[in-house]
Write a protein that binds this DNA or RNA. Structure first.
Length: 844
RNA sequence: GCCGGAGUGGUGGAAUCGGUAGACACGACGGACUUAAAAUCCGUUGCCGAUUUAAAGGCGCAGGGGUUCGAGUCCCCUCUCCGGCACCA
């Protein structure tokens, strides 16, 4: 029995329970009768409550999951929690609650929210990265990397945030602040665990080509991040001492134009040359000055180039020039290349600026095609292609050719080699924090760093730590944890007290879902080979570099370890846009009326709970999907939620009213018995079906899919089918309502299920009915609308029979009154006929 | 600076094979129902356009040029906004 008023309060919990009870989203990974589809939404950090912006992510994943199920796939759609990490530890300090308790409570709350949206997951595969059954295998992943020599320890300057301890490069913002808390980041020397991502840089770059299901933007961002450049390493020598002075350059073709050498203030060669040298005091003063300027400021555009001559000279191996001055400067980046740059003022703008300021010589070595370059008249560096001059035996050579020739010559003579340079640095995976997976290493006074044997995993995180201490890692203060014996020699030893970065926990979770309850392995290889890669990954673009790059990296490690066949984890990636809302306050920091992404600090957060209470989950889903193109940011407008709500109320009322007059079962529609307006509706129904399918298949354009469904409902109103209508019309009415329910099953699943059930459709559960098929007969058009143009301007329309010939169409068009008004007294020069579309008459 | 994306009514956005610009929705305005309001339903809604009504017609997709019978869509130039990388040699 259907109620008259749209009873979302009653039907939504009912159907959510039904999906649970029937295991609608449980996935049998062994099933081979259907093709697999692994649909994954990025798992959340359990930070508290979710807002409607988070919902967009899960709702889209759910629509795809349900749609793919209806298309006949065996869909794996799991959910879990990225539950290690700093916020829990900070909350623990703030509220004096154990991080574990805080995390578990947040998970419960967020799970309730996800379920209230009607999002379906295989909850039997639920994971939490802070659970020993999970982090045991995170530790295992670390050991695989260790075995391959990918994990290693080194003393290194780390990015140190006073609150969040050490950070990966990826966690430091462009202006040198902590990505998480915004505090300025300092450099601090610590012994750290690193992963050799640099060793994989080339593969990570090259395999981006395999990812044609990824947005171009994300591939570009990763390529930028990896930052590959090709050039040469050339050994200059310090003229006075004979020390090596290697440079990296991408422009070896300009090597005969080197007029000075620029070195970074903290370069080891400089520090070696300095003691007792003539200009020591002056140079040290400059180094001191730079040390007190934060990197963000030093390397900003606005900072002028500065430098001090060191008193030393270098020798260019190509032309034997011994008088090249060595300058210490503020603009050379110390950890890029060799930290020493050969400067060619005429062909590099930065070197030009510096040489101009300090009166250093400039020498042209690449001449343009017009041969107009002259140092006396040049006002900026010439960086384009040209022909070599003043370059010894290479004169006359095109510069692109010269690059290869000069490297080859230098290589033969032993002072140059072709090299590749990467921007990316090795990944610091260690954190001096409590709430993370302990690094499974024991430090033995005799054996050094010893990996914990796999059969002794997990290395458990103790519960009883004093995380309220104000200094350093609480784990290091836990005697019971720290003191152990060496797995190799049995002597007393100390555990590593650093924990693994949250990023490492979250870069392999998609593998665990496949085999989430496996107690003897991280995952079964055969099963993983069957289910990987993830067919569709969905998440925010803010993870374009960090999480997605690390995940790709770890999959390659596991592949090298023989644990996995696949080389890329995510076949297709969809990055959904953020939900923003206009700011209502004006407090200096935020501007009233400006769009900001939803956040507590802006105060523009919309909670799903009240909306679901007022309008129901289906309305929230429908509005969230209708709000705009899914890949773009969208503006949330509270008032606009009305539209989708009205639509569902209308759909419900239509279904309710129609129930009384339609046949009890599906009946084939007798096309010939339909009135024209009904015939239009039938066509529209199947056009909509084709259109909705296309919208979902091509770029998940849910917004236009929904618009088409709205149009169909408008057409249904227009057809005015009632008790007095023909049997054919009533059969059509039933088919329309039932097909709309099926098409809406992925989008607004509760109302779809309810209508499906109320209409007595089989099989039970609308998703089990599969995706409806287009009826070609319904699509057939008897007559077509033709647009009439004169000189490309629209001047009228006319209806013509569908099968009309081109000539007939042309004659009809020329005779039409709309056209004649504009062609009378003019000469028809040309007639363009686009069959089925338009006729354009060109007159003079 | 390099790379990527975007610019369409009062608003969110349609139209990506060159062929009716503004679908669909919000908001606004008018009407019906109602004692009244809400809800609902029905209209109107890009701009200019006779001092009255309606029309004719013109103008309109950041700006300028081009190709074409025809351009939001293709090509060239310019501007603005968003994102990534960046004194990376």
């Amino acid at each position: 029995m259907m109620e008259e008023k749209y009873p979302f309060h009653a039907i939504e919990p009912k159907w959510q329970k039904y999906w649970d009870d029937t295991g609608a989203f449980r996935c049998d990974t062994q099933d081979v009768s259907r093709p697999k589809f692994y649909c994954l939404t990025m798992f959340p950090y359990p930070s508290g409550h979710m807002h409607v912006g988070h919902g967009r992510n899960y709702i889209m994943g759910d629509v795809i999951t349900r749609y793919k199920k209806m298309m006949g796939y065996n869909v794996l759609s799991p959910m879990g929690w990225d539950s290690f990490g700093l916020p829990a530890e900070n909350a623990a300090k703030k509220f004096n609650v154990h991080p574990h308790k805080w995390t578990i409570e947040n998970i419960q709350e967020m799970k309730r929210q996800v379920r209230s949206w009607g999002v379906g997951y295989d909850w039997e595969r639920e994971i939490a990265t802070c659970h020993p059954d999970y982090y045991k295998w995170t530790q295992w992943v670390f050991l695989q990397a260790y075995k391959l020599g990918v994990a290693y320890q080194k003393e290194a300057p780390v990015n140190w945030c006073p609150l969040c301890t050490n950070l990966a490069n990826e966690e430091v913002t462009a202006d040198g602040r902590c990505d998480r808390c915004g505090r300025p980041v300092e450099k601090k020397n610590l012994k750290q665990w690193f992963f050799r991502i640099t060793q994989y840089a080339d593969r990570l770059l090259k395999d981006l080509d395999l990812l044609d299901g990824w947005p171009e933007k994300v591939r570009q961002m990763q390529a930028n991040w990896i930052g590959k450049s090709e050039g040469a390493k050339v050994s200059f020598k310090v003229t006075e001492t004979g020390d090596d002075c290697p440079v990296y350059t991408t422009r070896p073709d300009t090597i005969f134009g080197v007029t000075f050498m620029a070195i970074a203030p903290d370069n080891p060669l400089l520090l070696k040359l300095l003691p007792g040298s003539e200009k020591e005091a002056e140079v040290r003063a400059f180094i001191e000055k730079l040390a007190n300027i934060p990197a963000s400021e030093r390397f900003s555009d606005a900072t002028a180039k500065e430098g001090v001559f060191t008193g030393f000279h270098v020798t260019n191996p190509y032309n034997g020039d011994t008088d090249i001055e060595l300058w210490v400067t503020n603009y050379v980046v110390s950890d890029s290349g060799t930290g020493i740059v050969m400067a060619v003022p005429t062909h590099d703008q930065r070197d030009w600026d510096f040489a101009t300021k300090y009166g250093i010589a400039k020498k042209i070595v690449i001449q343009n095609a017009e041969k107009t370059l002259d140092v006396a008249t040049m006002t900026a560096a010439y960086v384009d292609d040209g022909v070599l001059v003043n370059s010894g035996s290479f004169d006359g050579m095109a510069n692109r050719e010269a690059i290869k020739a000069i490297i080859a010559d230098g290589t033969a003579k032993g002072y140059a080699e072709a090299t590749t340079n990467f921007r990316i640095r090795d990944w610091n995976v260690a954190r001096q924090r409590y709430w993370g997976a302990p690094i499974p290493i024991v430090h033995c006074p005799h054996c050094g760093a010893v990996p914990v044997p796999e059969d002794q995993l997990p290395v458990r995180l103790p519960d009883d730590v004093d995380y309220n201490g104000d200094q350093g890692n609480p784990l290091a203060r836990h005697e019971g944890f720290v003191n152990t014996t060496c797995p190799k020699c049995g002597a007393p030893a100390k555990r590593e007290t650093d924990t693994l970065a949250q990023w490492l926990c979250s870069c392999w979770y998609f593998l665990r879902y496949i085999d989430a309850r496996n107690e003897t392995a991280a995952f079964d290889k055969e099963l993983a080979d069957k289910w990987m890669p993830v067919d569709q990954y969905i998440g925010g673009v803010e993870h374009a570099v960090l999480h997605l790059l690390y995940s790709r990296f770890v999959v390659k490690i596991l592949n090298d370890a023989g644990a996995l066949d696949c080389v890329e984890p995510f076949k297709a990636l969809f990055t959904q846009g953020m939900i923003c809302k206009r700011c209502e306050k004006d407090d200096g920091k935020y501007v009233k009326g400006k769009l900001y992404k939803m956040s507590k600090s802006v105060g523009n957060v919309v909670s799903p709970d009240e909306l679901i209470e007022t309008y129901g989950a289906d309305t929230v889903r429908l509005y969230t999907l209708f709000i705009g193109p899914p890949e773009l940011d969208a503006e949330w407008q509270d008032a606009a939620v009305q539209g989708p709500y009205r639509f569902l109320c209308r759909l419900w009322k239509k279904a309710y009213d129609a129930k009384a007059i339609v046949p009890e079962q599906d009946v084939a529609v007798a096309i010939d018995a339909l009135k024209p307006v009904e015939r239009d509706l039938y066509r529209k129904l199947h056009q909509t079906l084709a259109g909705v399918t296309d919208s979902i298949e091509h770029g998940f354009r849910f917004n236009t899919a929904i618009a088409q469904l709205m149009e169909l409902m408008n057409a249904l109103d227009k057809a005015k089918i009632d008790a007095s209508s023909s049997d054919a019309a009533k059969a059509l009415l039933r088919e329309t309502i039932v097909t709309v329910a099926r098409m809406m099953a992925p989008i607004t699943p509760h109302i779809a299920e309810e209508i499906w059930q109320a209409y007595g459709c089989t099989p039970a559960g609308v998703m089990n009915a599969g995706w409806p098929k287009v009826n070609e007969a319904a699509l057939k058009e008897d007559s077509l609308q033709i647009i009439l143009q004169v000189n490309g301007k629209m001047r009228g329309k006319m209806m013509v029979p569908a099968g009309i010939s081109k000539t007939e169409l042309e004659t009809l068009a020329l005779d039409s009154a709309d056209v004649k008004r504009f062609t009378d007294g003019q000469t028809v020069a040309k007639v363009i006929v686009v069959p089925g579309k338009l006729v354009n008459i060109v007159v003079k």
